[in-house]
Amino acid sequence: MKKLLWLLLLSVLPAQAQQLVVPEKSKISFVYRQMNVPAEGVFGKFQATARFDPVAPNAAQASLVISPASIDTSSDEGNEIAVGQDWFDAKRYPEVRFVATRVAPAGTGRYALWGNLTVKGRTRPVSAYFTAKREGSDGWRLDGSVPLKRLDFALGEGDWKDTATLANTVEVKFSMLLTGQP
């Protein structure tokens, strides 16, 4: 019941929110390490809704839906593997979802964010810090990063469970441009 209420609330939110996340000026990327070699990947397709007013950060709201099929790991072969069953299994789980549950100030221009991340049917609480900077007349640039353990979400099954070659920790980074009046 509580979950349903949340869903209802979230489905209503985008219609009410006057602030918009500008997808072409926003980016969700990640840094993964293979044999200690850092490489960057991005998710090309995602939809985000957010409401953020630095004067009242506690009232902030955010939700994000990423299409794992849009992943680019910097390697064509890597992309094929990444959408496959051992990784995102994008056919069965076409969406990665994040819903913020709480935002709190954490220093000047810096905030802490809590929320639930659902990947491959597994929901785990995650938290991240982000910064907010003015961009344009009414925009906010929100930059943050969060180290995630890929195995918490069954990312990498079979041989890929081995973390000696491909590290368990993946640094996920987001840079969002939010425009409009909160």
Binding site: M35, N36, V37, P38, A39, E40, S74, S75
Partner: peptide, 20 residues
């Protein structure tokens, strides 16, 4: 150029001579 830096012996990351 492919976006994978060379990390010699898994310890020393060599500078990238080209951008991605």
């Amino acid at each position: 150029a492919k976006g994978f830096p060379v990390v010699y012996l898994g310890i020393w990351q060599l500078p990238d001579m080209l951008g991605k």
